[in-house]
Nucleic acid binder design. Sequence first.
DNA 1: TTGTAAGCGTTATCAC
DNA 2: GTGATAACGCTTACAA
Lengths: 327, 327
Amino acid sequence: MVKLTDVAKRAGCSVTTVSRVINNYGYISEKTRQKVHKAMSDLNYQPNSVARSLQGKKTQLVGVIFPSIANPFFGELVENIEAQLFKAGYKTILCNAASDKEKERTYLQMLMANQVDGIIAGAHNLGIDEYKKTGLPIVSFDRKLSDNIPIVSSDNFAGGSLATQTLYDHGARHIYFIGNPVLDGHPTQKRLQGYRQKIQELGLTAHIHPAQFGESLELKEMAIKELLQFHQVDGIVATDDLTALTVINVAQQLNISIPDDLKIIGFDGSRYIQNYAPFLSTIVQPIAAISELLVKLLQERIAHPNNELKENTFQLPIKLLSRKSSQ
Amino acid sequence: MVKLTDVAKRAGCSVTTVSRVINNYGYISEKTRQKVHKAMSDLNYQPNSVARSLQGKKTQLVGVIFPSIANPFFGELVENIEAQLFKAGYKTILCNAASDKEKERTYLQMLMANQVDGIIAGAHNLGIDEYKKTGLPIVSFDRKLSDNIPIVSSDNFAGGSLATQTLYDHGARHIYFIGNPVLDGHPTQKRLQGYRQKIQELGLTAHIHPAQFGESLELKEMAIKELLQFHQVDGIVATDDLTALTVINVAQQLNISIPDDLKIIGFDGSRYIQNYAPFLSTIVQPIAAISELLVKLLQERIAHPNNELKENTFQLPIKLLSRKSSQ
DNA sequence: TTGTAAGCGTTATCAC
DNA sequence: GTGATAACGCTTACAA
């Protein structure tokens, strides 16, 4: 590995001078600058960012903690975040937390040990305390961690509400919500609340059919089959697109016609779903905007770790993608 | 940040001793070991891996270069790779190359600068030379980079062949291949070759309908529409599942019944497709095995960078997932 | 405008 | 068994 001293030797100057032209500060004569540049490219020199970091410089490394990126929504979100981080000069350390507390804890330690500049957390099984202990700038997607951690999410409440209204407008009167019924600060909750409120406004009765996020497909299918067979239902607000697709698949098995007998609308609206499930209506989250904001907020936190936050909750607008399944 | 000297001070010994117990070498009395451990946990000490790396230790960082992880197949693959790397004690730096040469080049430089221990390359727009210049251990998924870089892939040839045979067995006689027709070392090629050979064995005529990987959905749809409307076709081998889904969507628009009028089979078989497109037949790549092998090979390269490779090509067996669309 | 040298937090080589 | 101390490659006072 070629290093600073090699460049200095070849350029016929001191390491300080070389460092100066690299970091571009202090006074250097144009001639020296030229010489140094030439030496660097001759030797194909790459500053060692490990050494640089040790010196107290930033590592330009960011930990991105998410559940499964095999899920197209998270895949697309992480892809966008990575792109934004790259644009801002950061490298992304991918931490797939899944629902493994121990793994998440280990990752947190690794991130500290690697002196990352910050963390974007899109899932957490761990409590606030373990995150606080890192002492690192953190921003969060969709989950509240603590008061002084900015949280970005879509307007889940409006989404739940809009989905419900949409089904109603197309004639549904027995509208069910499929999702996680437990109140735990999970974003699904706001979707559910939006649903509840709208149902009430419309003078209908709320029905919540449980389906956990991490649940196996088989269990979900069973639960959905039970719903479709034994309940009077003509509209479904699904907590996410994958659940919606499962409903559609089960409905097909049961010869229930969508949208004639049953209207359904999902949530998330990844490009992937938009392209390859073109019949599915869905509430679209603004993935690009979310990513941009997450990275922007993180940069602010990194620049001013101790600033009080004037605002810690950012809700981005969702929009309806109306397709066949709800019409 | 608490550091070695702090621990040493609290434990009442020298940094050397502390370092010894951390790295667990040399002789240390049990009593000292206890004291040090206590001091470490009292202070919640985390070794600084930046400093450690500077000292010549490995960074335990691996660059993972892939095209879009929003694509469920790559999403699942990268997720599996990340899991394997984690198990082996590595952190994953996610590099989404897309088709941006400049970005890929920059990433390569960053990876060098960060002293990563190795690279897993699942896409490359750049030539071998730029990769070789890094001097880093590399393993590749699905693309040949150079003779001394191990390449892991599925048995694409067998896949193409098996897909074709399957369609034939179910009665198709006008079987088209949709994919990239250019011969460029892209894995698609082997799928195509498998198709060609099988078609020949069966005494049929080969028809290749072009569709590029990175192409926009609209263009793909147009090309497919043209195919379905103006050609006599009763079977399609698609180069990947997403293309297959597009065919199905277009067929539906054109009121072509699948599998009655047209049988189709895709390629990749991510869990996602298996779960949410349950009607689609596909050739399943063994994602878990691929990931495992990639990481294992990379570890070998890291351990012995200069060993000659006795074998540089690893083809993992595919299998058929037979569903409605091809029956 | 340029150079010398101390220091970042570890590990490793000696010496005791 | 344990402890000084040089070294890793770089940045940055401080001198010149």
